[in-house]
Design a protein around this nucleic acid. Structure first.
Lengths: 277, 277
DNA sequence: CCTGATCGTCCATTATGCGGACTGTTGCTG
DNA sequence: CAGCAACAGTCCGCATAATGGACGATCAGG
């Protein structure tokens, strides 16, 4: 089905994204992928030639490169940038709660952290870095995203999730089904110390105009005597911002639909050429 | 050197980015790449499986997919998002001039449009869409980027540029060297009807804290009796915003350097795994 | 209903990518 | 500072995985 080399290259890109600014060494990647060193090295070299991967020649650490960012920017139609659209929400939430706000994008059966904002509260909760990938089901926002799927689809996804969740505690795995059920009713999800013992998280899903979850918005704070009380406050704030963001997407889409009306279908050849060799 | 399949996959991604929302048909890609149809189709299928490419099943048009955006977001350390950082500048410029503002990212020997904002002026200049790739040398910002390179490097790049610029008018090619020289003195560049006859553009380079050009900011408007006079006004505004953006990057980098101080080097294996089969 | 365009799939061939084995480099340790 | 261990990078013969010619399917227009 897939093309072996591309599958491997994409896997490498995912791992490097997940490693964030820290980066990864060649052997780490080798072990992670279960491939031989020369193979990984060759693919990395190729990706580096294209700028998708960069390599700190001092430390030999590999990271995602500038071209990965460029590819992303050039793929997002003006106004549909999730990170940008959620900017205001993130600032307001960090300001109002003082806690840590996390924005993730849904990526197949995972979520990827794409932005993070720390509030003023002196003890920061930094459970995830930008780039971190985690299977759906891990974290409050993630649960909310599952709850936003059509019930059958969610069940199917959850079934397939048990394997990647192997490395997480069983308590987390067992909590998914009931948590999702609850989130379907309330519209938000809570993760009470399941991912990290002392951390409590509240999250909502962000849906595109068709209702498909494309991201999550969450607030993380330390568990203490007052945290139970805070949960509902956080949830209210999150639901408010969720509405704003989703409306922004709807509006953008409407505006777009108007200017396009009925676009020409067959489309003759374009000429201006990307100069890749 | 490179891995054939990866080279081809990246070339496809570049072409699809360049085609923007319009998308491309299979045969167009086939012709563009000079490959056989089954080959292109197989690579496309693989990229689709990974979500990097999407396919409108009604029109059979291929476009960049959601995962391309996700990859981009997850690759950009918080605060170093060019598109986001330039947001304010784009709005102010569009507001103040009423003209069309264009933001590009430098990508090897090309520039890629990554954002666009139309001012209030009733006749819009839409020469480029988000995603459009053009060789360096085409457009005012592009010239400014060349001028921001060390002189020797710029000369080398310009030399290698003549081939991809084949499809552009000779007047444009001949204007590059003198335009770059001028831009080196003034700090901005002007493209007077060279890309499109009736359009005049002014642009500046955006440099990272090391001085390397990573993007361009430009203003495009129609040529008329007053346009000569407007050029210097536009240039002043652009230089102002250039300073702001570059300072923002410098500040972000400083802040980052502080929190990191001396990061641990060897870095043990991380466990949390991206679940790509 | 035919013609001419495109999209998608099959499968034999072979060029392409794979990985075992070697060399070079870095940094720890006694 | 010699000696070792762990890692980065390169070479090249072999076989596997990608290639592309050929075929069938689909759709639009005349």
């Amino acid at each position: 089905m897939g093309v072996q080399t591309i599958d491997r290259a994409v896997a490498i890109l995912h791992w490097l994204g997940n490693s964030g600014e820290q980066g990864m060494r060649l052997v780490e990647l080798q072990r992670a992928l279960g491939l031989k060193r020369p193979t990984v090295h060759r693919i990395l070299s190729s990706l580096m030639e294209h700028g998708l991967v960069s390599n700190d020649s001092r430390t030999h650490l590999y990271r995602l490169g500038w071209e990965a960012a460029v590819l992303g920017w050039s793929s997002v139609p003006v106004g549909f940038d999730l990170r940008e659209t959620a900017q205001g929400a993130m600032s307001r939430l960090a300001e109002e709660t003082g806690a840590t706000v996390v924005l993730c994008a849904c990526s197949r059966r995972e979520t990827v952290c794409i932005d993070r904002k720390a509030g003023s509260y002196p003890i920061k909760v930094f459970t995830v870095e930008v780039g971190t990938r985690r299977p759906l089901g891990v974290g409050a926002g993630s649960i909310a995203a599952l709850a936003a799927l059509p019930e059958e689809e969610a069940d199917a996804v959850i079934k397939g999730l048990m394997e990647p969740l192997q490395s997480y505690p069983e308590a987390l795995r067992r909590s998914i089904v009931p948590s999702v059920r609850l989130a379907r009713k309330t519209g938000f999800a809570v993760s009470d110390g399941l991912v990290l013992p002392t951390v409590i998280g509240v999250g909502v899903a962000l849906r595109d105009p068709r209702g498909v979850p494309i991201g999550t918005l969450g607030i993380a704070s330390f568990k203490d005597s007052a945290s139970d009380k805070r949960i509902s406050d956080y949830a209210q704030l999150l639901l408010r911002e969720q509405a704003k963001i989703e409306r922004a997407f709807r509006d953008k889409m409407m505006a777009r639909a108007k200017t396009q009306a009925l676009a020409p279908r067959p489309a003759a050849l374009r000429h201006a050429a990307p100069a890749n060799r």
